[in-house]
Computed example of a mutant assay.
Amino acid sequence: MEELDKILNISVDCVVFGYDITTKSLNVLLIKRFLESENKKEILVDDYVLTGYHVLNKETLDDTASRVLKELTGLTNQYKKQFKAFGSPDRLMNEKDQIWIKSEGFNLRTITIAYYFLLNTEEVDLKKNKHQAKWFPINTLPILGFDHEKIILEAYEDLKVKCLREPIIFELLPDKFTINEVQDLYQSILGIEIDNRNFRRKLINKKYIIALDEKQIGISKKPAQLYMFSKDIYDKIHKTNYLISI
Rank of each mutant, 00 (worst) to 15 (best):
L4S: 13
L126W: 11
E123R: 13
T73W: 09
N120L: 08
L164V: 02
I7M: 03
R67Q: 04
F199G: 00
Y208F: 15
G52K: 00
L92C: 07
K40P: 07
E38P: 07
Y186T: 06
I209P: 03
I10N: 05
T23L: 14
R33H: 14
I101G: 03
K207M: 09
K202E: 03
F146V: 06
W135M: 02
V68T: 04
M228I: 12
P223E: 12
I192V: 10
R201I: 14
E149R: 04
I168T: 00
Q216C: 09
N241M: 09
D97V: 00
N139V: 14
I168Q: 00
I209R: 08
Q98S: 13
N27P: 07
K207T: 07
T140E: 13
Q98L: 09
W135I: 01
D235S: 10
E122M: 03
L29Q: 02
P167T: 07
R165Y: 09
L119M: 05
C163K: 05
H131A: 13
I111N: 08
N27M: 12
K215Q: 14
T73I: 07
K207I: 08
D46G: 02
V49K: 05
E166G: 04
D213W: 08
Q216P: 12
V55A: 02
K134D: 02
T178A: 10
L164H: 05
R67G: 00
D158V: 13
F170H: 11
K96W: 09
K80F: 15
K58W: 15
N205I: 14
S103M: 10
D235P: 03
K222G: 02
N9L: 06
E154Y: 15
K40G: 07
Y242S: 12
L61H: 01
Y227G: 02
L29S: 00
D13L: 05
L108I: 15
G74Y: 12
E95F: 10
T110S: 00
E38N: 14
S37K: 02
V45K: 02
K84D: 12
K207S: 11
T23M: 08
I101E: 10
Y227V: 03
N94S: 12
E214W: 01
I151P: 00
P89T: 12
P223G: 04
S230Q: 06
G105H: 09
T60W: 07
Y116F: 11
K231S: 10
N9C: 07
K150A: 11
T23Q: 11
L72V: 13
K41Y: 13
M93H: 14
E2H: 11
L72Y: 11
K130H: 09
I21L: 15
I209C: 02
R201G: 06
L108F: 14
L212W: 09
H148P: 05
C163E: 02
Q82L: 09
K202Q: 05
Q183T: 13
